[in-house]
């Protein structure tokens, strides 16, 4: 199982006032608050932690079948500038984050070195629905090419936990994946399709 999350830093600055009273303390553990306070780039650190939590949660909800909203329960540790770990109760998730000046992208997995591929891209930042459709179409196109399946017959449906699943002619493809978009950026992560094809 895999999870991912992208934060468009410009969009985040417009949408969230992280200095609002209670915001940081409701979301971040003591350790995480320390990471932020000592960081050179506080905002990048804050949103890296957030994307770690989100991407790990996307796996956790599949394992437990339980949705919840309690960001503090998802406890992050940094290993270095890109790698880290998230602990949710007894579950552990490994994360790799791409931190740049435009966005922060994190992928989470249960094991180290899972055979997956992430693709990040720019999308038109208009409505949620159009952002959503552009991401779905990019993913369908990649699956269609890699597995030589007709794109029109590929559909993506979310299950009751909001986890997207791929279907071909309504038959599940059983490919582990995760999709994310925020502001002007979208991304998906999927099991390495080359390894399935051959």
């Amino acid at each position: 199982m895999i999870g991912n999350d992208i934060v468009d830093l410009k969009q985040a600055a417009a949408e969230s006032n992280w200095q609002r009273k209670g915001f940081v303390t409701k979301i971040f553990t003591q350790t995480e608050q320390e990471y932020i306070s000592v960081a050179k780039n506080k905002l990048a650190t804050l949103w890296r932690l957030w994307s770690m939590k989100e991407s790990a949660y996307k796996i956790n909800v599949q394992q437990t079948g339980k949705r919840f909203f309690n960001p503090k329960k998802l406890q992050c540790t940094f290993f270095n500038d890109t790698k880290g770990k998230v602990v949710i109760n007894t579950h552990h998730y490994y994360t790799v984050s791409d931190v740049n000046t435009a966005y922060i992208y994190t992928e989470a997995s249960i094991k180290h070195n899972e055979n997956t591929k992430s693709t990040c891209f720019k999308i038109k930042n208009n409505t949620y629905q159009t952002q959503h459709i552009s991401c779905y179409n990019r993913l369908k196109s990649e699956v269609s090419k890699a597995l030589k399946l007709e794109q029109n017959h590929i559909t993506i449906e979310k299950n009751s936990f909001g986890v997207p699943k791929l279907f071909y002619n309504k038959i599940p493809l059983n490919l582990s994946l995760s999709i994310t978009h925020h502001g002007s950026y979208g991304a998906y992560i999927i099991v390495n399709l080359d390894s399935i094809n051959n």
Binding site: A12, E15, S16, K21, G22, F23, K26, F69, G162, H182
Partner: peptide
């Protein structure tokens, strides 16, 4: 809030603070 209204989960924190 999330599945229907498509509220960004970071903004769910704002909603909770607003309710408080």
């Amino acid at each position: 809030f999330i599945a229907d209204l498509k509220i960004n989960s970071a903004n769910l924190v704002d909603i909770i603070l607003d309710v408080e």
